[in-house]
Structure formats: structure tokens, C-alpha cells
Design a protein around this nucleic acid. Structure first.
Lengths: 334, 334
DNA sequence: TGCCGCCCTGACAACGATGTCATATCTAGG
DNA sequence: CCTAGATATGACATCGTTGTCAGGGCGGCA
């Protein structure tokens, strides 16, 4: 900026005024400054400005997701980015791999960079460590998972009802040996889905002790192995509810391998790419990651714009998409 | 920091020393400062420090991709992030949607935030606008697409050979009416794939004027419509080469709709999620986005570490994965 | 003509940190 | 006991920018 000022033959403050479109600069001066800035390829230093600027905004957001190459996270990320772009805000993204240490490290990295707000998919037991930052006024919105140990905005899918809906779909088709394949039980979302599943079984009077509930599945491979193990039984399930997209993919692989994909019903929680092109198509309870991301980002900006209403939980509805796999009837008992 | 210094009863410089693990601070002082920092939940302001710090590094990278919810881009992003994490570097990601204006805006946003390096999938005609930044010493690595108008490092798939390989795969199985469905011709990568396709046809002595070459396809939907149109002909193709993952998905949809998926061969460029679970499985020339991302990030850090060797083009090999769709023989002429 | 007020403009301090340098304290060796 | 040299610490300038404020020029009005 000093160089631009020197080249244009004006003071630095005048350059600052031109860059920021402040009033009370003569047209001639504006032209001189712009020309000088152009020849020097001047790019203002946003962070230096922030140091002094009144609002102290870095126009930066931090986003924490399971992994940036998970399709669900990608869709959330994209929606957040689109909302942020309208405001000239850039987005930091970080993958967690469900590692609480990484969560803390990533949040700390964001905070040191003075992000204006955080959108987090958390994996740690408690997010109490964020309390001081919240008190400082940084908006924090949780997506997909709800916070523990602190109170803040959250945008989540309707996990309980979605899981119940998927389960009901299977039970109404007379399935009784329905297996549950789920993520780690320390994830609240996973617990809610499990509860939706179990409660729905209860409503249909199915004894839950006969129902395989397999948890701690974290990626497609462990889910595949768990599914194969399930069928190594005299009474394998006639239907499967898989509680997460990677788990669903693992189940699909296993059913193919066992050639059980045409006589075992499957409903997955969260949509899976190309699910409609499989044979049978995969019936899912689809979340709406675009909406989750968009609502979360709008929430952050609303807070930044001064919304001081109490922390709210926004529930994004899920939707059952019938594609074939969920409509397979139970095998005849032999 | 001032507050920490006041609370600990020391000078700000001493706090700075403790935060940065500089030597020559007594153990007692260190303890006092750490205690004070903890009670105040002090997070150092990385950007303020950067203003004065000798190396001027923000420990930040900018990544530009087609869209963060494209699976290819997600894999690249993840690989970049993993390399960056080891160095304590955070990553900004931005989606372009093949919009040159967005490219410039995103780069400008990154530059104003003083990223240490850029990893770009470009869409504009020329990246000459980056020349001043390159001169300033900012490492710029292009991924997936090569730069035009400037010289800088690039990490790309072997587009020409990969496309030729896919085409040969079809020609060796006696297909002669092979259609090409490709992305916009102003994308260099797309042109290379087309050329690989056409040259391979030439090597097999196939007259290219009889071969449908359809370009400008940008998403699954336009590709689907183009495929359907292709079959509205007395001599529809017996095989299709689709040059990009979204195009491949569109083709898959169309072939299903037309019930032509069992008698039309298909080889796609770039892998597609769950491609192995379809019937038939989709044969693809797979890129290696993880390796592309990793190599690109390592290149950036090598440059930051002082590597001043001439700009290099790293070619990441592709791999043909046979899954069924590419091995379908030509229909008998009727 | 003289004064008020508006429009432009730049000097200067400040933002939160680090680099430089001076100074105070301590330790060891003669 | 004195001093050189190491260790520990803080005052101050500085990074690139913006907020504050003062001042110069000029037009309008009494």
C-alpha cells in the first residue's frame, strides 16, 4: 500500500479510501490510485486491515466434517460455501476421521486464524472447550451432530424419526428378523437412529432380543465383514437397516458377494451415489445435506448480524426413497 | 496477549517467547505465563504475528476445484489436506463450477488472505493473471488441468494415453461405432482426451467422420439427454467412451432408461462411486485423485522449502479397471 | 471582504504480534 | 571480590492497514 501511495503520489490513507470505496475522494485521485494499484498488482492484505478494522471480521468460516471426501460432507460443504460466497466469505474445511484430537486441533487452528464462525460436525465427548469462544461471541453451529457440554445452535436430520420410518417400512412388509448395522454408539446421532429403530420394533411388538444390533461400524469394510458374519447363522436376517452411508455401501458389497441382494431387504440411512442405478435400487431414508449446510451457514450469518435469540435446534426432515431394495419381501421360512 | 502479560506480571515479549517456545525463559516464568494464558483462554492471533514474522507465512493454502462435492475433487482435497495437516497448514477450498469469473474471484480472495501457495483446477482461458503472483514467489501448482499463458508446476492424469487406452479396449473388442461423449472443448484436459480417442481410432483405421463426437457436456443431465439422442438413429453406437465422471453417470442413466445397458459397451474416464456394484459393473479408466492431491501438495511445500528447479509437469498414470460394461461385445448388425 | 462549512487529503496512533537491542541478574573463573 | 559471559527480561519499533483528527482549499452567503 505504501508503494501504491508513493507511485500515485498520494498518502496511504487516500489509497485506503479508494480501495474501500470510501467517499470524499476526487475522481482524479481515484483514477491515479487505481492505475498505480494495477501496475503494482496490489492486493490488499485482508488480515492487516482486520487488525484495525472496527468489526474485526476476517470474512472467514471454519467447517469441520467427517471427511471432505465423504459425499454427505461434500454436499454440506458446497452449500455452506455457496451461502458464504454471497457474503465474500471464504471457508476453511477440515476432516476429522472421527478423531477427537483432530477436532480440537482443527478448532484451535481455526481460532488462531480468527474465523468469524464455526460450523462443526463434532466427534468428541463434550464440546465444553468451546464455551470461552462462545462467550467471546463467535457463532458456533453444529451440523449433523448435536453439541454436548454446551448450548449452541444445531442443524440436524431427523434421526430418530427417519430411523423409525425406515424400520416401519420394513416391518410393514412383514419382516421380523431385521438387523441393525450402525455407527459407533458414542456418536449421539447413531444412538438416536438406533433408538428410532428399537422403538419402532417395540411398537410392532417385535422382541428386540432376537434382533441383531451391530454397532461400532465405521467404514465400508468393517460393515461388509459384519454383514457377512450376520449371514453365518441358521436364521439370517431377512432385512437390514444400515444407519449410515458408508455402512450401507459395505452392506451392498457383502450382499452381492453372498448373492443375497435379491432376497434380503435393505434400507439405508443417508443417500448413496448411484443408488438408483443398482439392481435392485437401494431404498434409503435420504437426508438433505444441501439444506443442512445452507441453514447452518445462514444461522452463522444471522448470529453475526446480531441475532441474539436463544440457541435453536433446527431439524431437517428426512425422506424415504423407495427404489426396490426396501420392498423385497421376507424369504419364506424353510 | 497484553492481557496475558498483565495477568502473569511479565512483559508482552516474554509471553511471546513462551508461546513460541523460544529459549531463555525461566521455568517459573513459563509456568506463570501458561497459567495466565489458560485462565484467559488465550489463542494467539496467527495473522497479527505474520505481519511481523520473518518468513511471512500464513500457514494457509488455497485450493480451487470444480466443486467440493464432486467425488474426484473431494479425494484431491482430502489428500491435500492430509499433507498440509502434517505441516500445521490449513486449507481454503473453493468451488468453481467452471466459471472463469469465479476462478478469478476465488484466487483474489485467497491472495488477499495471503495464502502461502495455490493448488488450482483452472477453467479460464489463460492464467496469465497469476504471473505477478508467481514472480512474487507464491508457489502455484495446477492439478488436473494444465496452465495456459504462464509456466508453473502441474500434476495431471495421463489424459491422452488414458483415453487411448479406453478406446483401444473397445476397438480390440471389435467395436467400430464408438461414440465419444465429452466435456467442453475449451477445457484442455477434455481436448487431450478427445485427441487420444481420435488418434486411437486412426490407428485402427476407423474413419472418424462416422464417429459421433459429442462435446460440451457438463453435467449428468446434459449427458443423459445427449445419449438418448444418440440412440435416436438408424445406426446407434455399439460402444460409448465417456470422458468424465458426471458424463459417465448421465450415460448410465440413459442406457438404463433405454434398456440398452446390457448390449452397449461403456468405458468411462474417471472412476465413479459404486461402479463395481452396478450390473454390469462400469469399466473405467481410473484416475488417482489421492496421488494427484498428494503430489501437488508436496510440490507446493517443496517450493516453499526453496526448491527452485524449473516448473515440472508430473503425470499420474491412469489404470483401466474392467468391470463388465467395457467388455460387452458389439451387437450383431441386423 | 470575511467567515462558515464542505470537500479532500494526509499525519499519526493503533490493532496484536515479533525482531532488535539494551539492561538487569546470575554464574563461574581468576 | 571483580569481571566476563551467559541467561532472563522488557522497551520500543515495526509489519500493513484503518480510525481519528486536523488542516488546506474553495465556494457561498452575509
Amino acid at each position: 500500500m505504501r508503494q501504491v501511495a508513493a507511485l500515485a503520489g498520494v498518502g496511504v490513507k487516500t489509497v485506503s479510501r479508494v480501495i474501500n470505496n470510501e467517499p470524499n475522494v476526487s475522481a482524479a485521485t481515484i483514477a491515479k490510485v487505481i492505475a498505480a494499484a494495477r501496475t503494482l498488482d496490489y492486493q490488499p492484505d485482508l488480515h492487516a486491515g482486520n487488525l484495525r478494522r472496527a468489526d474485526g471480521r476476517t470474512r472467514t468460516l471454519g467447517l469441520l466434517v467427517s471427511s471432505v471426501d465423504n459425499p454427505f460432507a461434500g454436499a454440506v460443504h458446497r452449500a455452506v460455501e455457496d451461502v458464504a460466497l454471497e457474503r465474500g466469505v471464504s471457508v476453511f474445511a477440515s476432516s476429522l476421521d472421527d478423531d477427537p484430537d483432530r477436532e480440537q486441533a482443527a478448532v484451535s487452528a481455526f481460532l488462531r486464524r480468527r474465523v468469524d464462525g464455526l460450523i462443526l460436525t463434532t466427534v468428541s465427548e463434550s464440546q465444553a472447550y468451546l464455551a470461552p469462544e462462545l462467550r467471546r461471541g463467535t457463532p458456533v453451529v453444529f451440523v449433523d451432530r448435536e453439541p454436548a457440554g454446551i448450548t449452541s445452535d444445531a442443524v440436524v436430520s431427523d434421526n430418530y424419526d427417519g430411523a423409525a420410518l425406515a424400520t416401519r417400512h420394513l416391518l410393514e412388509r412383514e419382516h421380523r428378523r431385521v438387523a441393525y448395522l450402525g455407527d459407533k454408539a458414542n456418536i449421539r446421532t447413531a444412538r438416536e437412529r438406533r433408538q428410532g429403530f428399537l422403538d419402532e420394533l417395540g411398537r410392532f411388538g417385535v422382541a428386540t432380543r432376537d434382533v441383531p444390533v451391530i454397532e461400532g461400524l465405521h467404514d465400508a469394510e468393517t460393515a461388509r465383514l459384519a454383514t457377512i458374519a450376520l449371514f453365518d447363522s441358521p436364521t439370517p436376517p431377512t432385512a437390514i437397516f444400515s444407519s449410515q452411508n458408508l455402512v450401507t455401501i459395505g452392506v451392498i458389497h457383502a450382499l452381492r458377494e453372498l448373492d443375497r441382494h435379491r432376497d434380503t431387504a435393505l434400507v439405508g440411512f443417508d443417500d448413496v451415489p448411484l443408488a438408483d442405478m443398482l439392481e435392485p435400487g437401494i431404498t434409503v431414508v435420504a437426508q438433505n445435506p444441501q439444506q443442512i449446510g445452507r441453514v447452518a451457514a445462514e444461522r452463522v450469518f444471522a448470529r453475526l448480524d446480531g441475532d441474539a435469540s436463544p440457541a435453536a435446534r433446527t431439524i431437517i426432515p428426512t425422506r424415504l426413497i423407495e427404489r426396490g431394495s426396501g420392498e423385497i419381501p421376507p424369504r419364506q421360512e424353510g
